[in-house]
Write a protein that binds this DNA or RNA. Structure first.
Length: 196
DNA sequence: AGCGTGATCTTT
DNA sequence: AAGATCACGCTG
C-alpha cells in the first residue's frame, strides 16, 4: 500500500480521527528494524472549545507543535512515566491533534515484546503509553513528521461505519461530555478504557 | 482501588 | 516558590 501524503491529513480533526482507524503506522529504527501497527483507537483534541486540549489557552513551550502543519508528530511526557503520541491536524497556526491510543501489532513483534517486557500480544500496544514504549518513541521525535523514512503511515481501505465505535475520551477531567473517542468495534487491541 | 513519577501550568 | 494536575499503567 502507498504511503499517506500530507493531503490526507488536511481534513477536520474529527474526520481525521476516524479516517486513521485501520491505517498502518510504521516506525523504522536504525539497523533496518521495521515496526508496524494498525491503528485501532484514536481521540480528537481541538484547541477551540475543548478544555481538555493542551492548547486550549493558546501556545506554550510544550504545546507549540500542535500549531504545526498537518502530519507532524506531537509527543509529550506525562505522569512521570509515559510518552503520548499525537498526529497534528488542522492548518498551520491552528491547534489540533489526534491522540493514537492503541494499535494492533503487524510487524516487529519480537522488538515490541522486548520493549514491553510481556509477550501477551493483546497487551503490547493496547494503550497510549504502551504503544510508545513498544515502538521506542520518546520526545526526541517531537516535531518530526510522517513524510520521512523514520515515520510514515501506509494506506488501507476505509472502514465501514458499522465497524467504528464512539465514546467519551479516556482519562480526562474537562470536557467529559464530548464523544471524541473512536475505535474499531470488537478489536482485542483497543485499550481497557479506565473509568472515573 | 491505590500509587509512582516528574514535567508543566497555575497560584501565591 | 509552592501546589495541583496529569490524554497512564501496574500491582493488589
Amino acid at each position: 500500500m502507498e504511503r499517506l501524503q500530507q493531503q490526507f491529513y488536511k481534513c477536520p480533526t474529527m474526520e481525521l480521527s476516524e479516517l486513521l482507524l485501520g491505517k498502518i503506522f510504521v516506525r523504522v529504527l536504525p539497523g533496518n528494524i521495521q515496526l508496524k501497527g494498525r491503528i485501532v483507537e484514536t481521540e480528537a483534541y481541538l484547541g477551540k472549545d475543548d478544555e481538555a486540549c493542551h492548547a486550549w489557552r493558546g501556545k506554550t513551550a510544550r504545546n507549540r507543535i500542535m500549531f504545526h502543519a498537518p502530519g507532524t508528530l506531537y509527543i509529550y511526557f506525562t505522569y512521570g512515566t509515559h510518552y503520548m503520541l499525537n498526529i497534528v491536524s488542522e492548518p498551520e497556526n491552528t491547534a489540533g491533534a489526534v491522540l493514537i491510543r492503541a494499535m494492533e501489532p503487524i510487524e516487529g513483534e519480537p522488538f515490541m515484546i522486548k520493549q514491553r517486557g510481556t509477550d501477551h500480544i493483546n497487551n503490547l500496544m493496547s494503550g497510549p503509553g504502551k504503544l510508545t514504549k513498544a515502538l521506542a518513541i520518546d520526545c526526541n521525535s517531537n516535531g518530526n513528521n510522517l513524510f520521512s523514512e523514520e515515520f510514515y503511515i501506509e494506506n488501507a481501505p476505509a472502514l465501514p461505519e458499522t465497524m467504528i465505535g464512539t465514546s467519551t475520551r479516556v482519562g480526562i477531567s474537562k470536557s467529559r461530555e464530548l464523544l471524541w473517542r473512536k475505535f474499531i468495534l470488537n478489536n482485542p487491541h483497543v485499550s481497557n478504557a479506565r473509568v472515573g
